[in-house]
Design a protein around this nucleic acid. Sequence first.
DNA 1: CACCAGATACAAAACGTTTTGCAAAGGGAA
DNA 2: TTCCCTTTGCAAAACGTTTTGTATCTGGTG
Lengths: 340, 340
Amino acid sequence: MTTRVGIRDVAKAAGVSVTTVSHAMNDATSFRVKAETQQLVRDVARDLGYAPNKMASGLRNQRSQILGLVSDEITTTPFAGAMIRGAQDAAYDRGYVVMVVNSGLDSELENREINMLRQHQVDGVVYARMYHQSVQVPAELEGLPTVLLDSVTDDKSISSVIPDEVGAAETAVEAIIQAGHTRIGMINNIDDIPATHGRREGFLNALRRHGLQHDPRHLVIGQPETTGGREAALGLLGQPDRPTALFCFSDRVAMGAYQAATALGLRIPEDVSIVGIDNLEIIADALWPGLTTVALPHYEMGSWAVHRILDDIENPGAPAVQTQLDCPLIERGSLGPPPR
Amino acid sequence: MTTRVGIRDVAKAAGVSVTTVSHAMNDATSFRVKAETQQLVRDVARDLGYAPNKMASGLRNQRSQILGLVSDEITTTPFAGAMIRGAQDAAYDRGYVVMVVNSGLDSELENREINMLRQHQVDGVVYARMYHQSVQVPAELEGLPTVLLDSVTDDKSISSVIPDEVGAAETAVEAIIQAGHTRIGMINNIDDIPATHGRREGFLNALRRHGLQHDPRHLVIGQPETTGGREAALGLLGQPDRPTALFCFSDRVAMGAYQAATALGLRIPEDVSIVGIDNLEIIADALWPGLTTVALPHYEMGSWAVHRILDDIENPGAPAVQTQLDCPLIERGSLGPPPR
DNA sequence: CACCAGATACAAAACGTTTTGCAAAGGGAA
DNA sequence: TTCCCTTTGCAAAACGTTTTGTATCTGGTG
């Protein structure tokens, strides 16, 4: 490995002082160097392949240009990837870079990892959860610019971004209603989490808005996986006055509903329409027919969080903001008119 | 934000010099400090919440304790998450931290991102692909310790880790044969990539080893997604002397095979057994019955790559090694004895 | 008692930048 | 010509560590 080229190498090669090189490179202060000299220096720098050492400049500036991203789980769904990419793209656009750290559910480990981030002098951290939930921000983050991703906390002084759960459900159910359905079932999550309540509320809102009767037997709950969806849908679709459309808590639940429909000899969407939430492409695209669903804005949330944190860093003191991002409908083939 | 506590604060509080504090903290050199003093210093450091500034120590040591991870795609499957987590866990265990960067297919962007990593003085980089493939290592990585993850290159001086494709297929097909099948079909990928050839080879190896006839009509190819699997399986299972078991290129292809079986009124595994590759849990667990499949060791590859790179950094000059990692069989419910 | 070795602690230099304060050069006005 | 201002360039300090070379102390030995 050839030894790295530093600022003094450039200075020597260009026949100027390191000060001048520094000024020439960081054009914020370029009024201290003649345009001509600046060009010369930059050319030399490029030819030499000079790239400033961020550890040195960070040390001097007390700014690392590094953001930390701490997440709980990362392996089971592609959502984490989308969030990370959103965060990383935004960071890159603004000259930052992202350190990813994840700790499963081990909060002891999480604290130690946050500590490592601190040692690396990260300028801020995005504290992310894989599923929208309410969290306690670890004390280790005290004093570091922090924004919550896919989670909220009681402390209103911390910015956060989450999906608009209510709106997402409304979007889905509106679409179902537009297609002509009046008997609409919902398979909700059994867990007591924000998504459960928000989506239920959105479901009921949409029904009410259109003056549709809500049959409580058509709103059931189950484990938020495929098996739970299958069992719930089996019950729902087995009834004589079965719903003609099912709004499912998630795409995995919807996949269970597909299985139930198939088992009962019901065609999708001719006999029953199904709509999910998540836009988990690996499932939604793979189902047959494709699953119409509402996308959760993971990429956008990652991007939003990073922009928020950088705004905060560059311009401290702005008030915290709690955001909800829109969830668009993604149409595939599982929503059609009700059977006559 | 209270101003960070530095080594001189600790020194002052403990009534010793910064040198002594440094020696007391880094116990490699602890023979230069009395055990008692060391304890005192450490206690004081803990009480003050002192955490050494890695930018400063990195600058001094010419070692950032940061690893770069550059990947192509990250959002579509959970594989990326598994790799990243494997890498990050391994890094954490050895006191390192991972900077993630990803660029889609834009190699121009990739180069600029690698450049950012260089500026941050990463000690090495893991160059990862999401699907096993043959790559050209970008010139930007020149001179940086690099290992290839889920990819290989012609340059044998670069270490790499990939799944044992041949072995994976052999494992799957052996299991099928053990279950009693003799007419075994395979739905392979149409793309000309290493996985395609390796899995085909493993399939044929296993058949040959057991003296089983290979009917060329039972080895078909298709797009490596669910739709491709469905169409291929429809053809395969529609034949009068249909195979009693299907070995699928991937879990998504296997999902298509499920759909085809269902459409043809075939039960799994009573009428036809299906085995995949990937252990894409979100699908394999969700299918009904669960999909028996061979796991691709994404987590392990991430971990292996990081350990390799750190070995290389700590002990330079060791020869490069190209590794293949084992792929274990994950049994769920889609493999049974052949119908009589 | 004098000397020495070993144990322990410290001061200072170095890592590669940025930035401040100052100096030199150039040019216009008196 | 002299003076002063503006433009351009430089030397040096600082960021927070680690490490080297040296100084001091202690106690044991001749």
